[in-house]
Amino acid sequence: MTDLLPQNIHDALAAKAIEHLHPREMIIEVLRAIQDHRGWVPDEGVELAGQILGLTPLQIEEIATFYDKIYRQPVGKRVIHVCDSIACWSRGAENLYLYLQETLGISPGETTQDGTFTLLPTCCLGLCGEAPAMMIGLKAYGRLTRERIDEILATERAEAGA
Protein backbone atom coordinates (compact mmCIF):
# COMPACT_ATOMS: atom_id res chain seq x y z
CA MET A 1 0.00 0.00 0.00
CA THR A 2 2.80 2.37 0.83
CA ASP A 3 3.60 2.76 -2.85
CA LEU A 4 0.03 3.98 -3.36
CA LEU A 5 -0.42 6.14 -0.31
CA PRO A 6 1.79 6.86 2.71
CA GLN A 7 0.40 5.16 5.79
CA ASN A 8 -0.28 8.37 7.68
CA ILE A 9 -2.26 9.88 4.81
CA HIS A 10 -4.09 6.61 4.32
CA ASP A 11 -5.05 6.51 7.96
CA ALA A 12 -6.13 10.13 7.99
CA LEU A 13 -8.34 9.62 4.94
CA ALA A 14 -9.77 6.41 6.34
CA ALA A 15 -10.58 8.11 9.63
CA LYS A 16 -12.22 11.00 7.81
CA ALA A 17 -14.23 8.60 5.66
CA ILE A 18 -15.61 6.80 8.69
CA GLU A 19 -16.79 10.08 10.17
CA HIS A 20 -18.17 11.27 6.87
CA LEU A 21 -21.89 11.09 6.27
CA HIS A 22 -21.29 10.74 2.54
CA PRO A 23 -17.85 9.20 1.95
CA ARG A 24 -18.53 9.50 -1.78
CA GLU A 25 -17.77 13.19 -1.51
CA MET A 26 -14.15 12.25 -0.85
CA ILE A 27 -13.54 10.31 -4.07
CA ILE A 28 -11.59 13.04 -5.80
CA GLU A 29 -9.71 13.89 -2.61
CA VAL A 30 -8.57 10.29 -2.18
CA LEU A 31 -7.72 9.85 -5.85
CA ARG A 32 -5.72 13.05 -5.83
CA ALA A 33 -3.88 11.93 -2.71
CA ILE A 34 -2.93 8.69 -4.44
CA GLN A 35 -1.92 10.58 -7.56
CA ASP A 36 0.16 13.04 -5.56
CA HIS A 37 2.08 10.18 -4.09
CA ARG A 38 2.25 7.73 -6.94
CA GLY A 39 2.16 10.12 -9.89
CA TRP A 40 -0.91 8.44 -11.32
CA VAL A 41 -3.76 6.21 -10.23
CA PRO A 42 -3.19 2.57 -11.10
CA ASP A 43 -5.98 -0.01 -10.88
CA GLU A 44 -4.84 -0.84 -7.37
CA GLY A 45 -5.26 2.82 -6.49
CA VAL A 46 -8.87 2.73 -7.62
CA GLU A 47 -9.38 -0.38 -5.53
CA LEU A 48 -7.70 1.21 -2.54
CA ALA A 49 -9.91 4.29 -2.83
CA GLY A 50 -12.89 1.95 -2.91
CA GLN A 51 -11.69 0.23 0.25
CA ILE A 52 -11.16 3.50 2.06
CA LEU A 53 -14.55 4.87 1.08
CA GLY A 54 -16.61 1.69 1.21
CA LEU A 55 -17.38 1.79 -2.51
CA THR A 56 -16.82 -0.65 -5.33
CA PRO A 57 -13.91 -0.07 -7.71
CA LEU A 58 -16.45 0.63 -10.45
CA GLN A 59 -18.04 3.38 -8.38
CA ILE A 60 -14.62 4.97 -8.03
CA GLU A 61 -13.77 4.42 -11.68
CA GLU A 62 -16.93 6.18 -12.83
CA ILE A 63 -15.59 9.31 -11.18
CA ALA A 64 -11.92 8.77 -11.89
CA THR A 65 -12.50 8.52 -15.63
CA PHE A 66 -14.75 11.55 -15.69
CA TYR A 67 -11.96 13.98 -14.80
CA ASP A 68 -9.10 14.63 -17.15
CA LYS A 69 -6.69 15.48 -14.37
CA ILE A 70 -6.92 12.07 -12.77
CA TYR A 71 -4.38 9.96 -14.63
CA ARG A 72 -5.51 6.40 -15.06
CA GLN A 73 -2.49 5.54 -17.16
CA PRO A 74 1.16 5.77 -16.21
CA VAL A 75 2.66 9.19 -16.73
CA GLY A 76 6.15 10.61 -16.51
CA LYS A 77 7.53 12.35 -13.48
CA ARG A 78 6.22 15.63 -14.88
CA VAL A 79 2.99 16.02 -16.79
CA ILE A 80 3.01 18.92 -19.21
CA HIS A 81 -0.45 20.32 -19.90
CA VAL A 82 -0.39 22.63 -22.87
CA CYS A 83 -3.33 24.95 -23.15
CA ASP A 84 -5.02 24.64 -26.51
CA SER A 85 -7.95 26.97 -25.88
CA ILE A 86 -8.76 30.11 -27.78
CA ALA A 87 -6.61 32.71 -26.02
CA CYS A 88 -3.47 30.64 -26.25
CA TRP A 89 -4.40 29.43 -29.71
CA SER A 90 -4.63 33.03 -30.87
CA ARG A 91 -1.09 33.61 -29.71
CA GLY A 92 0.58 30.66 -31.33
CA ALA A 93 -0.03 27.77 -28.97
CA GLU A 94 -0.36 25.32 -31.84
CA ASN A 95 3.19 25.94 -32.98
CA LEU A 96 4.55 25.71 -29.48
CA TYR A 97 2.70 22.46 -28.98
CA LEU A 98 4.40 21.13 -32.10
CA TYR A 99 7.69 22.44 -30.86
CA LEU A 100 7.24 20.60 -27.56
CA GLN A 101 6.44 17.41 -29.41
CA GLU A 102 9.56 17.82 -31.53
CA THR A 103 11.79 18.71 -28.61
CA LEU A 104 10.54 15.87 -26.45
CA GLY A 105 10.28 13.45 -29.33
CA ILE A 106 6.81 12.36 -28.33
CA SER A 107 3.23 12.78 -29.49
CA PRO A 108 0.44 14.02 -27.27
CA GLY A 109 -0.44 11.41 -24.69
CA GLU A 110 3.03 9.88 -24.73
CA THR A 111 5.81 9.88 -22.19
CA THR A 112 9.46 10.55 -22.97
CA GLN A 113 11.68 7.52 -23.03
CA ASP A 114 13.48 8.58 -19.89
CA GLY A 115 10.14 8.74 -18.13
CA THR A 116 10.45 12.42 -17.29
CA PHE A 117 7.71 14.11 -19.29
CA THR A 118 4.24 13.26 -20.42
CA LEU A 119 2.63 15.63 -22.86
CA LEU A 120 -1.09 16.34 -22.74
CA PRO A 121 -3.34 19.07 -24.04
CA THR A 122 -5.58 20.89 -21.63
CA CYS A 123 -8.39 23.36 -21.88
CA CYS A 124 -7.95 26.98 -20.80
CA LEU A 125 -5.74 27.30 -17.72
CA GLY A 126 -6.88 30.78 -16.80
CA LEU A 127 -3.52 32.15 -17.92
CA CYS A 128 -5.01 33.95 -20.91
CA GLY A 129 -3.25 37.16 -19.94
CA GLU A 130 0.05 35.32 -20.25
CA ALA A 131 -0.81 33.29 -23.32
CA PRO A 132 0.49 31.00 -24.62
CA ALA A 133 0.68 29.02 -21.43
CA MET A 134 1.16 25.58 -20.00
CA MET A 135 1.13 23.84 -16.70
CA ILE A 136 3.71 21.34 -15.53
CA GLY A 137 2.40 19.39 -12.61
CA LEU A 138 0.52 22.08 -10.75
CA LYS A 139 2.89 24.84 -11.72
CA ALA A 140 1.77 27.44 -14.24
CA TYR A 141 4.01 28.85 -16.97
CA GLY A 142 2.97 31.72 -19.22
CA ARG A 143 4.36 33.89 -22.02
CA LEU A 144 5.87 30.86 -23.65
CA THR A 145 8.37 31.08 -26.46
CA ARG A 146 10.60 28.37 -27.83
CA GLU A 147 13.48 29.69 -25.78
CA ARG A 148 11.46 29.85 -22.62
CA ILE A 149 10.20 26.32 -23.17
CA ASP A 150 13.79 25.11 -23.47
CA GLU A 151 14.66 26.77 -20.18
CA ILE A 152 11.59 25.46 -18.40
CA LEU A 153 12.16 21.93 -19.62
CA ALA A 154 15.75 22.06 -18.49
CA THR A 155 14.80 23.27 -15.02
CA GLU A 156 11.97 20.81 -14.63
CA ARG A 157 14.14 17.97 -15.88
CA ALA A 158 16.81 18.83 -13.37
CA GLU A 159 14.25 19.07 -10.57
CA ALA A 160 12.77 15.75 -11.56
CA GLY A 161 16.22 14.30 -11.12
CA ALA A 162 16.49 12.92 -14.59
Binding site: E29, Y67, I70
Partner: peptide, 25 residues
Protein backbone atom coordinates in the same frame (compact mmCIF):
# COMPACT_ATOMS: atom_id res chain seq x y z
CA UNK B 1 -12.36 24.01 0.20
CA UNK B 2 -12.85 21.43 -2.52
CA UNK B 3 -10.11 20.91 -5.08
CA UNK B 4 -11.46 19.51 -8.31
CA UNK B 5 -9.78 17.49 -11.01
CA UNK B 6 -10.66 19.19 -14.26
CA UNK B 7 -13.66 19.37 -16.58
CA UNK B 8 -15.36 22.54 -17.72
CA UNK B 9 -18.83 21.09 -17.13
CA UNK B 10 -18.25 21.29 -13.38
CA UNK B 11 -18.80 25.01 -13.74
CA UNK B 12 -22.44 24.36 -14.57
CA UNK B 13 -23.99 24.80 -11.16
CA UNK B 14 -25.95 21.56 -10.98
CA UNK B 15 -23.03 19.57 -12.42
CA UNK B 16 -20.90 21.21 -9.77
CA UNK B 17 -23.26 19.96 -7.07
CA UNK B 18 -23.02 16.45 -8.47
CA UNK B 19 -19.27 16.77 -8.56
CA UNK B 20 -19.24 17.79 -4.90
CA UNK B 21 -21.44 14.85 -4.00
CA UNK B 22 -18.97 12.51 -5.65
CA UNK B 23 -21.23 11.40 -8.46
CA UNK B 24 -20.57 11.96 -12.12
CA UNK B 25 -20.71 15.66 -12.89
Amino acid sequence: LHRSAGRYICGEETALLNSLEGVRA
